[in-house]
Amino acid sequence: MEKILDIGKYIEYAVNWLTENFDGLFDFIKNVGNGFIEGLEWLMLGIPFYIFIVLLTILAYFKVGRGGAIFTALGLTLIYLLGFWVETVETLALIFVSTFIALVQAIPIGIWAAKNANVNKVVRPILDFMQTMPAFVYLIPAVLFFSIGKLPGAFATVIFAMPPAVRLTTLGIQQVPRDVVEAARAFGATGRQILFKIELPLATKTIFTGVNQTIMMALSMVVIAGMIAAGGLGEKVLEGINNLDIGLGFESGLAVVILAIILDRITQAFSQKNDNKALKKLKSIFNKKQKA
């Protein structure tokens, strides 16, 4: 079919204009960003794998429970045995950095949208756009701005993973009972006091659900970002596809699944209401010690 309207052309112009005129800025961002990601990778790889596994297992034990701990220990050991340890840590580092950058933007935007109906009207369609645009499309501007590597991977990941955190922050704050907020106002609370003493604490669970979603979306995008040489498990998956190596494809895919389940269970535990038994025990022991 013949093309009558060419929006793509203008987008191309815009992106080209940006790359030509802000070359220095993009380079700067790229260098700083890569520095962060590689620094974190270096730190995480500096920890011996067995200590890493033990630490995550302990975290899983207290936040998720015994089952979660066993799964974490076995899953991570399996990844190590499959020889994907370095790739997994690279992927984790990229997830952490992307999620961090996404949340730093998403939570304030979410709060702003909850407080201001006009902001919400503008933000919502943008979020719809960001979420439904096929993930691969983000790789193109990422490469144009930053060429290939880890930072463009993080860039695409941040865009793709941010929307749920914005949405759920807005939702969480809007769900805070109005009478509680009114009571705080009646006692002379300032806007800031209401936000930090009432709204954020009461929205925490919902916001953490958003954080969980963001992490999961970041994981899926980080794998896709393997296509632009972001490294990690994504590159292994890609290698499997390119070589039609079913064995490698399955193994690296399995590693992604294990990582996803561990991340999901642990972050979900933060958004749930009650502490599990192990954590309660720990807290009661701690309290007793404090009293004594």
Binding site: P177, V180, E182, A186, A189, L202
Partner: peptide
Amino acid sequence: RTEMSMVFQKFGLLPHRTVLENVAFGLEI
């Protein structure tokens, strides 16, 4: 903060805080 306090039909208590912390809320503010 100092001259008028209000009591609400739906109580308006902070569900994430203990009774004592709720009562102290106005003073905290």
